[in-house]
């Protein structure tokens, strides 16, 4: 087993899947020669040639639209959108075609494709480089949306996504791309899509998070533990389809629920989870199921972003409020 960052795990997984399955093709802007602006695809073109890993023109609609065609005709495209903020030109393809091919053709065609994209804030970036758009995908019937928060899960989930018969949006929390390492087994394994993970068991409150927020919750938990508050942390891992059972089971035990996300609050993923908990665990609730999301504003540039990002202190504050409720 080797120690890897999330980014290295992704690179390693792409390599492994390309090796094992000659129908896997990888492309996107700057993906070939340079190996991607974050180097997620470094070395792949050299190893597998320009027909399996290549630079696309600056054309997101083209990247995703051609992936649809390739997937219909025998390939498994794993395409990269350079930053999630630039997926909008491809949104027509994603919403109108990627999500619908199976249902429109009543199963005659299906799209085994993966759309990878770095997302999320906290990297002092320019405009359009910090958003969290998971809802915009999760809201579309026909898509699966996956977000890893550790190198181990990155490999397991990406492997599962590539093997999935349906299209998967694979969002990568770029802020923690290289923030830590973890043991990643060399052999192929999958982390099933649609299965959340109880990262730590606790008794007083259930906190659900994903991506870079998992680490923030963990930091908050250190603080809270000293105050005698026991948090059960669930890493959602798959935004859609949601692992309802794991969440409800936990809330029925703890009686309190908080979801933390980087995405803006209104109509965000938190609303979905709170609704699910309210209906499914109504009789167990000691406090209102609550969401902690970003303000409903355009992500501020660096000189205002510190106001916007959710950190462990705010998470701890919100947890305390619910415990005291």
């Amino acid at each position: 087993m080797a120690l890897m960052t999330i980014l290295q795990a992704i690179n390693h997984t792409l390599d492994q899947q390309m090796e094992k399955d000659s129908t896997v093709v990888v492309y996107g802007e700057d993906v070939g020669v340079e190996g991607g602006v974050f180097r997620a695809t470094a070395g792949l073109q050299k190893k597998y040639g320009v027909e399996r890993c290549f630079d696309a023109p600056v054309s997101e609609a083209g990247i995703v639209g051609t992936a649809v065609g390739m997937a219909i005709n025998g390939l498994k495209p794993v395409v990269e959108i350079q930053f999630s903020g630039f997926m909008f030109p491809a949104y027509n393809q994603i919403a109108a075609h990627v999500a619908r091919m199976r249902v429109r053709s009543r199963g005659k065609y299906h799209l085994p494709l993966v759309i990878r994209m770095p997302y999320g804030g906290g990297i002092r970036a320019l405009e359009h480089h910090s958003e969290s758009q998971e809802t915009l995908f999760a809201h579309i019937p026909g898509l699966k949306v996956v977000i890893p928060s550790t190198p181990y899960d990155a490999k397991g989930l990406l492997t599962a996504a590539i093997k999935d018969p349906d299209p998967v949006i694979f969002m990568e929390p770029k802020r923690i791309y290289r923030a830590f390492k973890q043991e990643v087994p060399e052999e192929e394994y999958i982390v099933p899509i649609g299965k959340a993970k109880v990262v730590k068991e606790g008794t007083d409150i259930t906190v659900v998070a994903w991506g870079a927020m998992v680490r923030e919750v963990q930091k908050a938990m250190q603080e809270l533990e000293q105050e005698g508050i026991s948090v059960e942390l669930i890493d959602l891992r798959t935004i859609k389809p949601i692992d309802k059972d794991t969440i409800l089971e936990s809330v029925q035990k703890t009686g309190r629920f908080l979801v933390v996300h980087e995405a803006v609050t209104s109509f965000g993923p938190g609303a979905e989870l709170v609704s699910l908990v309210t209906q499914g665990a109504f009789l167990s609730l000691e406090a209102p199921p609550t969401r902690l999301g970003a303000f409903d504003v355009t992500v501020p540039l660096d000189k205002g972003e510190h106001h916007y990002l959710i950190d462990s202190k705010r998470i701890a504050y919100e947890v305390r409020k619910l415990i005291k409720y």
């Binding site: 120690l3 700057d30 602006v37 974050f38 180097r39 930053f83 770095p118 906290g122 990297i123 002092r124 970036a125 320019l126 480089h129 550790t150 181990y152 899960d153 397991g156 770029k174 802020r175 923690i176 791309y177 290289r178 923030a179 830590f180 390492k181 973890q182 043991e183 087994p185 394994y189 982390v191 993970k197």
Partner: peptide, 22 residues
């Protein structure tokens, strides 16, 4: 070690606990 084309990404060699899912 390496950067993206935009912004600054935290880099560390911190090792987190292994996944217990195996």
């Amino acid at each position: 070690e390496e950067q993206g084309v935009i912004g600054e990404i935290e880099v560390s060699n911190e090792v987190i606990e292994s996944s217990d899912e195996a």
